[in-house]
Structures are given as C-alpha cells and as structure tokens.
C-alpha cells in the first residue's frame, strides 16, 4: 500500500533544491546564497518561535546553514529537502533550548548529526505549493480545540514529552496522547484533500 502513498517524484525529476545542494558539493557560493534566499525565512521563523530570542535564533540559523554548506555531501539528494531542513533546524533549536537538561540527553539519543526524515515525500506534497500548504497547516491546527492545539505546540515547539505536557496542561496522560496523534492524523487528512 505504501507504493501508493509514497511515490518518489517522477523518475529523473530533480527538485530545484536538490540541484542547488548538488552545486554546494562543488563549493558554489551562488547556490548557497540561493538556498538561503529560498528558505531562510521559514527556518528563522521556526527557530525564533522555539527560542523566542532574536540573537540566539540567528546564531542557530547560522549554524544550520553552515552545516548545509560544510556537510552537503551527507545530504541524500533523493530526500525531500525542505522537510529535512526544517527537521534539522528544529533539532538544533531544541538542543539550544534544552541545553544539558534531561530532555536534551533523551533527544540526543535519537538525533544523529543529520536528522532522520522521510526518504520520499508523500505524493500529496505536490498537490499544494509551500504557501498553500502552510495556510492549510495553520487553518487545521487553528481549528482544533485550544487545549489540543496547545498540546501539539508544546510537543513541537518546546520539545515536551507526553507526561510533561500532561503535567503542564493538567490533563490526563491518555488524553494528551490521543490529542497529539489525532491532531496529526487530521492534519494529514487536510493536506491530502485535493481541494
């Protein structure tokens, strides 16, 4: 069944980002600048939301883009670039946020130098451009009950675990678990819907 859900982009079709990443291997500064122009806003927005402090956020964004530049050979060109970049940026920002805490050690166990990310984007990724997909994400999560939305934000932007979220929101653990899962499944439905 996953053949249907996950299909690599049409054979031979290379995304502009993958092309730019290839050019980074040849130390192409222009390609780096273009990648930065294309994605620095969303990366910075995400990191700033996590860290809430402009100068620290810029340091993390700088680290993320330098990692792209210095370790571009480690990036698997067949993987969807933007989700991968966003995962890398989130991991870095959460590391910064939770320096030396238990949460940090826990996360490190599952974080490699480059993050794990889908080896192919779901085919419905192409149904919406980035802007419309962003609108869809905001709309759907915004439509959830406030406590459920809060639980998802605490997990994603603060890096909290189920039990930490339950304690923070004073809600039963089982409720928190089902909120996070059902919220993400609803998001998937929303992004899959073609209209």
């Amino acid at each position: 069944m996953f053949l249907a859900v996950f299909s690599p982009k049409g054979s031979g079709e290379v995304s502009p980002d993958a092309t730019l990443m290839q050019q980074l291997l040849r130390r192409d500064v222009g390609a780096f600048e273009e990648l930065y122009e294309r994605h620095s806003r969303i990366v910075y927005s995400l990191v700033l939301r996590i860290l809430r402090q402009g100068s620290t956020a810029e340091e993390v964004v700088q680290d993320v883009f330098l990692q792209l530049w210095r370790n571009s050979a480690q990036y698997d060109l067949s993987r969807p670039f933007v989700p991968w970049l966003l995962t890398l940026a989130r991991n870095r920002a959460l590391d910064q946020l939770r320096l030396k805490s238990e949460r940090q050690r826990r996360r490190e166990e599952q974080t490699e130098q480059f993050p794990q990310i889908a080896s192919a984007a779901p085919e419905y990724e192409q149904a919406l451009d980035e802007k419309r997909r962003a609108e869809r994400v905001r709309l759907l999560i915004g439509s959830l009950p406030i406590a459920q939305k809060k639980a998802i934000e605490l997990a994603y932007f603060e890096g909290l675990s189920h039990s930490e979220i339950a304690a923070s929101l004073k809600e039963p653990l089982g409720t928190v678990k089902s909120w996070i899962r059902s919220g993400l499944l609803r998001l998937k439905e929303s992004l899959r819907a073609t209209s």
């Binding site: 996950f6 989700p83 889908a118 779901p122 994400v137 994603y156």
Partner: peptide
C-alpha cells in the same frame, strides 16, 4: 513506512511559527 510519512507531517508544523525575517 508510517514513520517516514509521520516525520514529513511533523516537519509541516513549522508553518505554525509566526512569519519572521532574519
């Protein structure tokens, strides 16, 4: 396979962050 799709999905939550400009 489900994990791969879930990771992709989770990455989309980045768009909840308010727009900011470095």
């Amino acid at each position: 396979k489900a994990l791969q799709e879930a990771r992709w999905l989770v990455s989309q939550l980045a768009y909840l962050a308010p727009n900011a400009e470095p």
